[in-house]
Design a protein around this nucleic acid. Structure first.
Lengths: 237, 237
DNA sequence: CAGTGGTCTAGACCACCAG
DNA sequence: TGGTGGTCTAGACCACTGG
């Protein structure tokens, strides 16, 4: 096995064992290259592995920091890094336009507080929007994002791609997106806006987007009627 | 912008434009380092980017090959590379045991032929299995894999993790897994094996696993009853 | 300012593949 | 055997960070 892979394994164990404490810095490249008796490039390759696994982040002039959330999230689906533009993979696509059904600011319930790592006194935007239903596979989406991250959010922005706004205008770097999937029965809003009956199955996709440092940035919950449109949205087989 | 990122962009364009033809080799490191007037390491870094994007693969002693499927599959979800063991992210987990309900060899229908890139004369295993329903969230799975890839498949293997068998025993390297999601009404088999009614919504996950060179290896289609068990399986919000 | 990580070089040795 | 990509080195310069 190559040196840098072994070094990465060693470092990974130390992180998991708590030998390197979350939110604090790893030893610097120079120290590590002394310890393992390799060149700095080899250390860097090892650390690249840990970065790609979401265990650490590095900052020039600062060091390599162990992340909080780190090794727990197995089922995380990483954002594709395509030509240096990070894009959400599923829900907030380029071309789609949204009709904003409601636009509120609220204090978050406990569930949201936990998901977004905020307290009850930090207000959040809560937006309900409907994807332009000219296409068969329209989506009903609920977006929740703390006001402190984007205090000047508008309906106009929400009728377009939120993800693109956060990346291009607000200069956030989305590091990973966690998606969870459920099938549910259509609720009242689904029936009203997605034009389906109460017995129709709905695909529910809940998405949390995280920044580079592991901070949860926003929640996007989508409802998709797969059958009522006579069209199996994500159907493959 | 750093050299290797720019070089990667140039190479990517050439691949997309068809300047470098699919299924054939890129110029060798040495040639590229002459063309761009950089060291070989810089070329290698550039090519690493293309590898991570799924555009090319490299083989020692051979070269760097442009992949077929390549840049098309945007919504691909890469397999997490965890401690040098590639694991399926969603469906074929470590600990679960399966009851094999049926185990057949068949000639594939057209849909399967296309998905697995095989012709009608190449037989496939078709297995129906039920995840140990001691847990609330049991799954009904259909597995389809060409006989030519694993001629000695058994019920015993299928009652365990197929993914692990293919990786550990057959030494396949799974490069990426494409998942698609749908919500459907419970069909007869779902009602029978997942203990639900005909109006219950079912989460259907269809998964195709691909080898390093882009060959589709097998299909795994899972049905999950999210509500009947009183338990929202992938529920988050 | 000193120290960090990011990039880059020129050269080296190795494992692997084809003929 | 000769050529490929994979790894590694020692040293270099740079952009960025904190004090």
């Amino acid at each position: 096995m190559s040196k840098y892979v072994e070094i990465a394994s060693t470092l990974r164990e130390r992180i998991i064992n708590g030998e390197y404490i979350a939110e604090s810095f790893l030893p610097y490249h120079k120290e590590l290259s002394k310890e393992f008796k390799v060149s700095r490039m080899t250390i860097q390759n090892a650390i690249h592995i840990l970065i790609s696994e979401g265990l650490v982040i590095t900052k020039r002039g600062l060091g390599t920091m162990v992340l909080k959330r780190s090794f727990i999230e197995e089922s995380i689906s990483r954002v594709a890094n395509w030509n240096n533009i990070t894009l959400s993979s599923i829900n907030d696509t380029n071309s789609s336009k949204f009709e904003v059904l409601s636009f509120d600011v609220q204090f978050p319930i406990l569930e949201i507080q936990n998901l977004l790592d905020i307290n009850e006194e930090e207000p959040v935007y809560e937006i309900l929007r409907l994807e332009d239903s000219s296409k068969l596979d329209s989506k009903l989406q609920r977006v929740i994002i703390p006001v402190k991250y984007t205090s000047n959010l508008t309906k106009t922005i929400m009728s377009d791609s939120l993800m693109r706004y956060l990346i291009d205008e607000m200069c956030y770097k989305i590091h990973c997106v966690k998606n969870t999937f459920t099938a549910i029965r259509a609720d009242e809003k689904d029936q009203k806006y997605l034009n389906c009956s109460s017995s129709d199955p709905i695909l529910k996709i809940d998405q949390v987007s995280y920044c580079e440092d592991g901070t949860p940035l926003f929640i996007l919950s989508s409802h998709i009627a797969c059958e009522s449109s006579g069209y199996n949205y994500f159907q493959l087989l």
